[in-house]
Design a protein around this nucleic acid. Structure first.
Lengths: 355, 355
DNA sequence: CTGAAAGCGCTTACAG
DNA sequence: CTGAAAGCGCTTACAG
């Protein structure tokens, strides 16, 4: 039965005109009823609705939007779909859009892939984003959401762009609305958690020095330490580059210090895994001899032994909020310029209470 | 400079008519030149191309496709973007389409999310797929690719659908072209690899009993054993459900056998991780006391200690091949009905040579 | 080599 | 309460 209806649409391609003929009315009448205009006799209205249902008629999208200037389509430009945060972000976003009757067009910049293999300069990246925006503009999307792979200043969105635009997981210099998560608070919360477990000697394995994520998490850490009047040992602060090896190396260096910390706060789960590796070589047990925490709640964090205490980033929620914000803009409502969603701490078994 | 061009398009919205006026020719002439028709005086052609470039004119997509019936858009219907295989599949596919000048529209069925939370029956799923296909048909995509989350008979594609259609990562009863990977050969290869390392006593921790993946990998295993005239011990064969716990449980049960195998072939990496867990409780070292191999090459396989030997599934290649197949169909070329891409074995440190 | 005109399938004032 | 008509921005025979 379902199938029959589909056949109709695809093979017969019924038009407004035919519906009108079958009902003995004008196409204007059918169109108006279809668009929810009122003031029609119940009789004609019912007859038309009946025929529409029978035939499985669906308006021609191209014709409609050629006139009506609204496509009910939202464009997503994503830095890279293979980034760990992208799927959940996209899922949250699409789930929300679906509920509101929007279609999704996707452009994949392939940021990681291309920076590693193809792109020679930042200009090339900018050009790719511009091209993506142009594509979106050609098909007249109602709005665009840019999904970044990491927090940074997105500097390639044209000023005065007349398409509603929202940035997800990053921000820009202009007044473009953005939805991010609260790195600083997460850094603060994790630090306070460690302190609550009796840890005052906390080592840091951070990300790249110029990363916004590094900066903000560090700010949160510092605030928490200050709040509890705890001294911060700069010798225990390392910069990594988010990958396993850098976590491993940092941990190794750490053990050359005279005094050792009781806990290691790694700014992502992958580096925390490097720490585990290093500890195991030294016959030290994470969560027993020394506490370790991560960030991101990557799949690997559940598979580590002991399971890693970490920070959950509300990816799905960021996606939903981004979509909500964009749709508000489309509808002419006012929105906050910057929305920072809170993370939450996932307590597992990698921290011991030394109180 | 880039930006200026964009502004033009978006704000001024130049039309064919205006180009024609500026050049002192008819819109038909401009349109024809734009569409690569020949037989025009070099002079007019140059003048028109010049003005088009100057103004940054781009044809109105809606108007063009309303007439021309080709959208250069491909629809992707994906079981679930948050499935582990989806991002690379999508990436491969989009990379290929981009190169060929196609746009991508995405529909996310949210298979896992919905089966777990919302969907009550298979019919609801079918309806969702039908709805997605309808949406695609309304916007007149040139073709559709269905990306499945696991191999199975996709039974909800309308027969005689007049839109080119390709199934990725699964297949159907009809003659719909599909691109999958060769589970059986991968099972065979892994088994032969273990045999080459001196293992003849091989335990199996498989997936669900009715899974195509389970069936095919098992078939490959059996073939390899037979080829080398090795006996198969059915007591060492367990069915899991792909998750950590089932791998753990199977391993635990295995150790109640009188005789123990020298290697365990887990049909995915996650269950292999459960095996690692179980072994560590028994103070047995994977890769030393007993060999373990997995399947999928999930991120976690690189993070296990010792790193897991596993099977790489050519996700990106499947995506590319699917796109290639679809575009061939769109262009009226003939294609193979079923394409099975080979996997490859990734040798790491979880197998010891006992020759 | 170039252009007038019909038409793709709709929406939207406007008239009655 | 309903409909004739213009028009969205293009493409495509067809005529010259």
């Amino acid at each position: 039965m379902n199938f029959c209806i589909i056949y109709y649409i695809m093979i017969l391609m019924i038009t407004l005109k035919e519906i009108a003929e079958r009902c003995g009315v004008s196409i204007a009448t059918v169109s108006n009823i279809l668009n929810g205009k009122t003031n029609f006799s119940e009789e004609t209205k019912e007859r038309i609705l009946e025929v529409i249902k029978e035939t499985g008629y669906r308006p021609n999208y191209m014709a409609r939007t050629l006139r009506a200037h609204k496509t009910n389509t939202i464009g997503i430009i994503v830095d890279d779909v293979i980034d760990f945060s992208a799927p959940n972000l996209i899922d949250g976003l699409m789930g929300y859009c679906e509920g509101k009757g929007y279609k999704i067009v996707l452009e994949n910049i392939r940021f990681y892939y291309k920076t590693a293999n193809i792109w020679k300069s930042h200009d090339e990246y900018k050009e790719a984003v511009n091209k993506a925006i142009q594509e979106m503009s050609v098909i007249k999307v109602d709005g665009i959401i840019y999904i970044a792979a990491h927090s940074r200043n997105i500097d390639c969105i044209p000023k005065n762009l007349d398409i509603p635009f929202v940035i997800s997981y990053a921000y820009d210099d202009l007044e473009t609305p953005c939805v991010v998560f609260d790195d600083e608070k997460a850094g603060f919360d994790m630090t306070e958690y460690l302190i609550s477990k009796g840890h005052s000697k906390i080592a840091l394995i951070m990300g790249n020095k110029d990363s916004i994520h590094t900066l903000d998490r560090f700010k949160g850490f510092t605030k928490a330490m200050k709040k509890h009047s705890l001294p911060v040992n700069e010798k225990w602060q390392y910069y990594g580059n988010w990958n396993l090896e850098s976590g491993y190396d940092a941990c190794k260096n750490l053990f050359e210090s005279k005094e050792l910390p009781s806990a290691i706060f790694s700014f992502n789960d992958i580096m925390a895994y490097g720490v585990y590796k290093c500890l195991s070589e030294k016959n030290l047990r994470p969560g027993k001899d020394i506490s370790v925490v991560g960030f991101d709640n990557r799949e690997v964090s559940r598979f580590m032994t002991p399971e890693l205490t970490t920070i959950y980033i509300p990816l799905r929620e960021i996606g939903e909020k981004s979509a909500d914000t964009l749709i508000r803009i489309i509808n002419g409502e006012s929105v906050e310029q910057k929305i920072a969603l809170p993370c939450s701490l996932i307590e597992r078994d990698s921290v011991c209470d030394i109180n």
